[in-house]
Design a protein around this nucleic acid. Structure first.
Lengths: 333, 333
DNA sequence: TTGTATGCGTTATCAC
DNA sequence: GTGATAACGCATACAA
């Protein structure tokens, strides 16, 4: 329904409030932002005037002067990836509890877009959370030199980071596969340049080596359902029995396509993923996966930023990952 | 990794650029924002100086003067609801294409939090998208009187809105149920005060009446998986054969709990939902649902706002909904 | 305790 | 085509 062209009357300023309360604008500012620095009587008058005029302080004017926007920028690769929603939610929770606003921007996994986005954001936020970023190191450093930056799923010396302890979950996953009789594992890599995909691959390699299992990495691929689907023919052709995908989306895609081509999961091939996204539990067969505590990651990242703002140093802690065994992995055929 | 306390050197301003290029600050402003209003030679000098100083205009200072932030606020009830993914994505797509930044805030379905959120946002954005809001009418009107507002899934005279055409999808769903032999339908209502839940219920009623089927509404309930689970006992006890849930989350929860208690879906009871969220297709049995084009809704809403900003009037169009028949509905037992 | 003056970085409105 | 200047709304150092 298209409304009529409204005449948005100008918002009240501290000048309006001051005039109505019969005081100086600076007194209004003090009364409203530093309680106690003004006599009780005038404060009451000012509050009443402000109420009557429906006054709210203009965050833009305040920010220009103070240099603080009470805003946190969160840059994610792909907003449709269910995995990032945990991060968003955790960060939002912590931010809004401290009266910070969270600005979410999507880079679509395109590094150029990511540069543009961070550029645009940098001057309007107090700090930045870069989740699963594919920005070059120098670029991250240059951002971090200007404003507090916290990385999620990426490590870079001198920059705060919230990292999952991939090792624990992967070790359990590979042991699980080994126990089922699998002697080799194929790892389906995620996007090119993804730090976290590298880490997962490294952990798979180490865990497999410790058990004398052979491993191979395929990729990189789009970390999506379609990215996973595309791999099914090769999995079947080469008769692999155990596949670990970079994330659940890829695992789901691979599973679907394998079944569509007449393969059985886990009968012919066991498939596992990472993240434990929404749906992993409902799909048939239910997906075996390494759960990453995204919501906690989001909370930690936002918390780290808030501490930085207050000049408090922040001690990173690794987020434990956990193997969730479900039905997509089974004995080697 | 906690970095050292950086000394974030102050960002360059137009004064710095002006000094370096040997011109007046106002000329810098013109050269950078209004191309062509300055001689080619000086513009080149200025651009070079800006480049060398790594200058970016301060959006806050600009906004203070112009009153335009190039920012759109999007308020959603629950960021963990997969249905909102689409809205977020669609809105982000349109906004960033026009160089607008999207600020996403979550109200957690709590009207008080929503009031606080919209309050906080109002002065720092150019316009607001309220998705599935539960704000009181007067409140929405008061927001709309100050800044352009677009509603998604809610109708209010005089305020722009993007609405799904519930009717078409629901009519098809009820016809489908009728054809399967069901003579009565239970509607599982969503949250209290949800405008869209009311609409869906109304459409179910009308479609059922047209086919002389009997209907009942239960609720309101939390529009979540748990909200759906809680209803399974009653569904089984009262031997209902057809259930339509307010959304897929509730439908999935109801389905799970029915099966856990020994019921069969669709053997004993057919269950359908709304939204076609991620996962509906993978769950077993795959969920029959009325798909709502959320991404288009997000795009439309953002588009409407952008048109309003330019003073262009906007013509709403209903978004068609579509019945997706899958395996959770079947012949009446 | 309160008022005065100034500046944050930009753009718009004048002159020139 | 370019420079000077005011103004956006607020917070703060300083004066009273």
């Amino acid at each position: 329904m298209s409304g009529e062209a409204e005449a948005p009357r100008p918002a009240a300023t501290i000048y309006d409030v001051a005039a109505r309360a019969g005081v100086n604008p600076s007194t209004v500012s003090r009364a409203l932002s530093k309680p106690g620095r003004v006599s009780a009587a005038t404060e009451a008058r000012i509050r009443r005037a402000a109420e009557e005029l429906d006054f709210r302080v203009n965050p833009i004017a305040r920010a220009l002067l103070t240099g603080r926007t009470r805003t946190i920028g969160l840059v994610v690769a792909d907003a449709t990836n269910p995995a990032v929603f945990g991060i968003v939610r955790g960060a939002e929770e912590v931010a809004s509890a401290q009266d910070y606003t969270l600005v979410i921007a999507e880079s679509r996994g395109d590094p150029d877009a990511e540069v543009a986005t961070t550029d645009r954001l940098l001057l309007s936020v107090d700090g930045l959370i870069l989740a699963t970023t594919r920005l070059p190191d120098e670029r991250i450093r240059s951002l971090a030199a200007r404003k507090p930056v916290v990385l999620v799923n990426r490590r870079l010396d001198g920059v705060d980071a919230v990292l999952p302890d991939v090792e624990s979950g992967v070790t359990a996953l590979v042991a699980h596969l080994d126990a089922l009789g699998h002697r080799s594992v194929v790892y389906l890599a995620g996007a090119h340049g993804s730090w976290i995909s590298e880490r997962r691959w490294g952990a798979v390699q180490r865990a497999a080596a410790a058990r004398s299992m052979s491993v191979a990495q395929w990729g990189p691929h789009a970390p999506t359902i379609d990215g996973g689907r595309a791999l099914a023919p090769r999995i079947l052709d080469e008769s692999h029995t155990a596949v670990v995908a970079f994330n659940d989306l890829m695992a789901i895609g691979a599973m679907q396509a394998v079944v569509q081509r007449g393969g059985a999961v886990p009968g012919d091939v066991s498939i596992a993923g990472f993240d434990d996204i929404f749906g992993s539990e409902f799909i048939v067969p239910a997906l075996t996966t390494v759960r990453t505590p995204f919501e906690a990651a989001g909370r930690n990242a936002a918390g780290a930023l808030l501490q930085r703002f207050d000049g408090v140093s922040w001690e990173p802690e690794l987020l434990g990952t956990e193997l969730i065994v479900r039905d997509s992995t089974g004995p080697r055929r």
